[in-house]
């Protein structure tokens, strides 16, 4: 599994966010995308998800443009529809695909069990903590059997214990798909990421890709420098 971004260009009005951006992400790893505020991390996720259209360049999933439903995207907020319970949210991708309710229910329960939200199945999102909402949204992505999982700040507004739960869950989930999570927290990225992608500059480009673990910490200074380079 491989996700490739080729020659991506994107602007907000006169502001060139990306120009000739190239990157590739492999499946089986937890890829973390970091970069200073406003560099375009969320924009890049939205381009990959197909929500924003680049003015030039293309996204390829295993050599072909991704089909609808192959990419699951979790925004920072509003990741669950507030008028549906956790169960209804998790079953939604299957309903959209027209999969029977009995089959959908079974698959949703498996996914909720895996992400630890089965006991919250009948709650509405407003009754969940930040971490519980994220785990429910991850369950929905698993049900969708998306090949690519994109997460924008998955641990924002989550308490420390909840953060650990989410990263542990994502480590497991990432083994079977291409996972890209955005965070602005360098330390968190170095701690959990298998690969750390640093987005920097204007127009932004992938300035560095570092393998996680001990070696990543040696690169900390240069990563911090990249944060402030314009």
């Amino acid at each position: 599994m491989r996700l490739e971004l080729r020659e991506i260009a994107f602007s907000f009005g006169d502001l060139k966010v990306f120009d000739h951006l190239n990157a590739s992400f492999n499946g089986g790893n937890l890829n973390i995308l970091i970069g200073p505020n406003g560099v375009g991390k969320s924009t890049l996720l939205k381009i990959i998800a197909g929500i924003l259209k680049p003015s030039r360049g293309e996204v390829f999933l295993d050599g072909a443009p991704p089909a609808r439903g192959e990419i699951s995207y979790l925004p920072q907020d509003n990741e669950l529809l507030p008028w549906f319970t956790v169960r209804e949210n998790v079953e939604l991708p299957l309903k959209i695909r027209g999969i029977s309710s009995a089959e959908g229910r079974k698959r949703a329960e498996q996914a909720m069990e895996l992400t630890g939200v089965l006991q919250l199945a009948d709650r509405y999102p407003r009754r969940l903590s930040g971490g519980e909402r994220k785990r429910a949204a991850i369950a929905r992505a698993l049900v969708a059997e998306a090949k690519v999982l994109l997460l924008d700040e998955p641990t924002a507004n989550v308490d420390p214990a909840g953060k650990e739960d989410i990263w542990r869950l994502l480590k497991g989930v990432a083994k079977e798909r291409i996972t890209i999570a955005v965070t602005h927290d360098i330390a968190e990225a170095l701690l959990v990421g298998d690969f750390i992608y640093v987005l920097s500059g204007r127009p932004a480009r992938i300035a560095e890709v570092t393998e996680g673990g001990e070696r990543a910490w040696e690169r900390l200074r240069s990563i911090v420098e990249l944060y402030y380079r314009r």
Binding site: A49, R68, I71, P75, E79, L81, L92, I96, R97, A144
Partner: peptide, 9 residues
């Protein structure tokens, strides 16, 4: 919310 539905196909 609508974008979520779009990404689900």
């Amino acid at each position: 919310y609508e974008q979520l539905i779009e990404t689900m196909g």
